[in-house]
Design a binder for these strands. Structure first.
Lengths: 111, 111
DNA sequence: ATAATTAATCGTAATTTTACGATATATAAA
DNA sequence: TTTATATATCGTAAAATTACGATTAATTAT
C-alpha cells in the first residue's frame, strides 16, 4: 500500500487547529466582535456585556490572549484589551490557504 | 451605563463557534486535507494514514460529520467519506464575514 | 493610612474531549 | 454456512474545558 503517514505535528496544522480552537466558543467570538466595534481600547466593559461571571470572562480573555488574537495592557487598576492585528492576519492567512486547499479542483465530489 | 448585553445564542455566533470547534483539532484538519487531495471517494484509508487507533479516527470522523463538514456513505462493508461542499461553503462564508467584521475600519488599534 | 475598585488567580465541580481496547454489526469472501 | 473484513459503538480512563465564588494583588480614591 505504501501510504505515507500524515505528520500531525506540522507547524501550520497545529497552529491552525489552535487558532480554530481558540475561537471555538461563542463567548470568545463575541468578545472579538465587541473589541472590534470600538475605536478606543475598552477594558473591563467586556464583563458588563457578557452575561457570565467576571472570572469566567477573564479565563476566556486569557485563552484569546494566549492564542495571539488579542492583546492586554495593564493601565493602572484596569486592563486594556484590544484585537491583535498580527494574530488576526495570521489566522486569516492560515484559513484562506486551508480553504483554497480544500477547494482545489482535484478534490472529489462523489457523494 | 446602559450597556446592552450580548446575545450569546445568536444563530451565526453559535454556528461559527461550532464549526471552528470542529476543526479545532489537528487530526480533523488533517482528515479534511486528506479527503480534499483525492478525486475518488476514499474510505477507511484514513485510518491507515492517521497514527491513531481506528476507534479514535472514527470518533473524529463523527465530529466532522455532525458539524456538516464531511459526508459518509456506507458502501458495502466500507464507508465512503468525502468533503461536504455545502458545509465548507457555509464555513467559508461565516468566517469571511467574521473577518471582515473584525477588520472593519472603526476597529481600534490602540495597543 | 484606609477603603474601594479592577482584574487576575485559586480551588473546585460538572461536563466534554480525547484516546484506547474490546465488542458488535453488517457485508463480502471462502 | 462459516470466516474474514471494515467500521461503528461501547466502556472507560485521563485530561481539558467551562463555569462559579472566593481570594489576592495592585492601583486609585478618600
Amino acid at each position: 500500500m505504501e501510504t505515507t503517514r500524515i505528520n500531525l505535528q506540522s507547524k501550520s496544522l497545529v497552529r491552525t487547529a489552535a487558532l480554530a480552537k481558540a475561537i471555538g466558543h461563542p463567548v470568545r467570538i463575541a468578545i472579538l466582535q465587541f473589541l472590534s466595534g470600538r475605536d478606543v481600547c475598552i477594558c473591563g466593559d467586556i464583563t458588563d456585556v457578557i452575561p457570565l461571571a467576571q472570572s469566567t470572562v477573564s479565563q476566556h480573555l486569557k485563552v484569546l490572549k494566549e492564542a495571539g488574537l488579542i492583546k492586554g495592557d495593564v493601565e493602572g487598576v484596569k486592563t486594556c484589551y484590544c484585537l491583535n492585528r498580527d494574530g488576526l492576519r495570521e489566522f486569516e492567512q492560515l484559513f484562506s490557504s486551508l480553504f483554497s486547499e480544500l477547494n482545489s479542483p482535484d478534490s472529489g465530489n462523489c457523494c
